[in-house]
Design a protein around this nucleic acid. Structure first.
Length: 551
RNA sequence: GGCCCGUUGGUCAAGCGGCUAAGACAUCGCCCUUUCACGGCGGAAACACGGGUUCGAUUCCCGUACGGGUCACCA
């Protein structure tokens, strides 16, 4: 038995499976050649941000567009940061945005033949691989305490050396076997460290987004297993993505600097590393520049923000797609009604510089998405949203379902539909006036129309109101009423000779509009009246007559 | 500080050695119009800087500046 084999047996006394056993247990996937296997591997910290969705969306598209498979693995190796129910919340949030996994952790448990998919449940696997690594002389135990590590760092700082546990700074790299045995026997906790090659050659990696990367070889003896026996990200990534047969790893560019570590471990194990794609970070504009999105300062970073505000999931997806693939918008213009799944997503067209999140752009995308949605669907979406987040809206909207659907349909059947519905909270305040319990007079009468004048106009309008009239005759009647009361039928006439009139039709309809909507701006009056129904129209006119009478 | 990545209008971005340097959002003006929204037309607005290479650089190379990332028993 070699010294190294003895060390492995000392460190990991319970014999387990060999790497070869695992190779047989997790055979290559029965997929056509070239079919991508991608994964989302979040840590369950409870905070789900837009970046998660952004990356997940790229993973999902890549897999599903090319006959591959997309799975969910939970990286719960850091107990300290974990929050309860985080995985379920994540699955729920992604599902809301239309992202489904083929395999991995599910709301109730897990599915798939390459599990377990929660890293804490894979402890045995990591340990078995670690044992073999140790037996091959690629790993060694390190007994350094936090304090000692701090000392090393301080000396490095003083000496102007690079930080880290490497080369001569790696105190326990060449501990005598007897010393190790003694410490283990005493029950001293240890981490298992990677034995990095003394002078690692630069590595060349082909990145799916950045192209050819030449990075300095790794010389750090990074920690593979923490003292509690749980692996670090680096080790878990290599083991899991190998045995789960991941072909494409999409992750944020913050991983670029540890890429040499990963490539090195893959190579040492004789495994082929996955195709890496390092995506840019989502940034946020701030006075003078860009900065990384921050949890505390940017509520729109959290996925909950979009749900709470009532953005349609499709709007968020389309927006993200415009960030993901720059030619998406052009494609959309050419295929206005095609489902976005038909867009040929491509890694090569992903940009490599950080993108600023732009709420205005999202709003624009959202307007277009809602304008294209059948009104019935929009109404259903709104009711669901209100049920979850906006009780006041839920109360009135569910009481009058059909009414809401009719309201949403206003001005949306034409070739150029209205685009004034953006997101839930905005829509709620925009549509309040339609519902009696929420109706108030918000704006004032036009400057050139006094209360008495308004009262007269309203009384006449109310007396002559014909709910059955079509739009043309209704407007003709309105113009007649305006003319009889000294208002120009056409704004142009008034502009030409203002001294001849009190105002123009616009002023008269402004008074009616105020009576019906409480505002000086609203969608087309005739349509509003038709949707409101005759009773409601008459009631509001009466109420307005009372109201201006008191002015 | 070391190493790595990035840098085209306010924002997202086309561009891959020769272009009057696309388009979208935002913005401004005009038109349409009973208000708003929609729609149409038009305007303003960019290759970070300095060296190379080249007949010719936004495009290739090297510096500088700026921004970001990373140097944990976090992912």
């Amino acid at each position: 038995m070699t010294e190294q084999a003895k060390l492995a047996a000392l460190l990991f006394p319970n014999s387990g499976r060999s790497i070869a056993d695992y190779e047989a247990l997790y055979p290559p996937r029965p997929l056509p050649a070239g079919a991508p296997v991608t994964r989302l591997a979040p840590s369950p910290t409870g905070f789900i941000h837009l970046g998660n969705l952004y990356g997940a969306f790229a993973d999902e598209r890549l897999a599903h567009q090319n006959g591959g498979l997309f799975f969910l693995r939970i990286e719960d190796t850091d107990e300290k940061r974990e929050t309860a129910g985080a995985a379920e919340a994540l699955i729920g949030a992604l599902d809301y945005f239309g992202l489904r996994f083929d395999e991995g952790v599910t709301a109730g448990g897990e599915t798939g033949a390459y599990g377990p998919y929660r890293q804490r449940r894979r402890a045995e696997l990591y340990r078995d691989v670690a044992r073999e690594l140790t037996a091959r002389g690629l790993a060694y135990p390190c007994f350094c305490t936090e304090d000692e590590l701090g000392e090393i760092r301080a000396s490095q700082e003083a000496a102007g050396a690079n930080f880290g546990y490497y080369g001569l700074w790696a105190r326990h790299r060449n501990l005598a076997p007897g010393e190790i045995e003694r410490r283990v026997g005493r029950g001293e906790p240890f981490t298992l460290r990677w034995r990095a090659p003394a002078a690692a050659a630069a590595v060349t990696v082909q990145d799916g987004i950045r192209g050819r990367l030449v990075l300095p070889g790794n010389e750090q003896d990074i920690v593979l297993l923490k003292s509690n026996g749980i692996p670090t990200y680096h080790f878990a990534h290599v083991v899991d993505d190998h045995f789960m047969r991941t072909t494409h790893v999409l992750r944020g560019e913050e991983w670029l600097s540890s890429l040499p570590v990963h490539v090195q471990i893959f190579a040492a194990l004789g495994w082929e590393h996955p195709f890496y794609c390092h995506t840019p970070l989502l940034l946020k504009a701030e006075a003078g520049g860009k900065r990384k999105l921050s949890k505390r300062k940017d509520p729109e970073l959290g996925l909950d923000f979009y749900r709470r505000e009532g953005y349609h999931p499709r709007a968020v997806r389309e927006y993200l797609l415009t960030l993901l693939n720059s030619d998406y918008e052009e494609w959309r213009l050419g295929h206005p009604t095609a489902p976005m799944e038909e867009f040929p997503f491509s890694l090569a067209r992903m940009g490599s510089s950080g993108a600023l999140f732009d709420l205005q752009k999202l709003n624009d995308v959202s307007k277009n998405v809602l304008a294209a949605l059948p009104p019935g669907e929009t109404a259903d979406f709104l009711r669901h949203w209100a049920g979850d987040w906006q009780p006041e809206a839920a109360a009135v909207w569910t009481a009058e379902r059909e009414y809401l659907a009719a309201i949403v349909a206003i001005g949306r059947r034409e070739a150029n539909p209205r685009k004034d519905l953006v997101y839930g909270t905005q829509i709620f305040s925009f549509l309040r006036f339609f519902f009696d319990p929420l109706f108030t007079i918000e704006d004032a009468l036009p400057d050139n129309v006094g209360a008495t004048e308004a009262r007269g106009l309203l009384a006449q309008y109310s007396a002559r109101y014909d709910h059955a009239a079509d739009k043309e005759s209704w407007f003709a009647a309105l113009k007649r009423l305006a003319a009889e009361n000294g208002y120009a039928e056409k704004p142009r006439d008034y502009k030409k000779q203002p001294e001849l009139y009190k105002g123009h039709v616009g002023d008269v309809s402004a008074v009616i509009r105020l009576a019906l909507s409480g505002r000086k701006n609203s969608p087309d009056l005739w349509e509003v009246q038709q949707v409101m129904g005759e009773d409601r129209v008459r009631r509001r006119l009466e109420a307005m007559i009372q109201y201006v009478g008191q002015l």
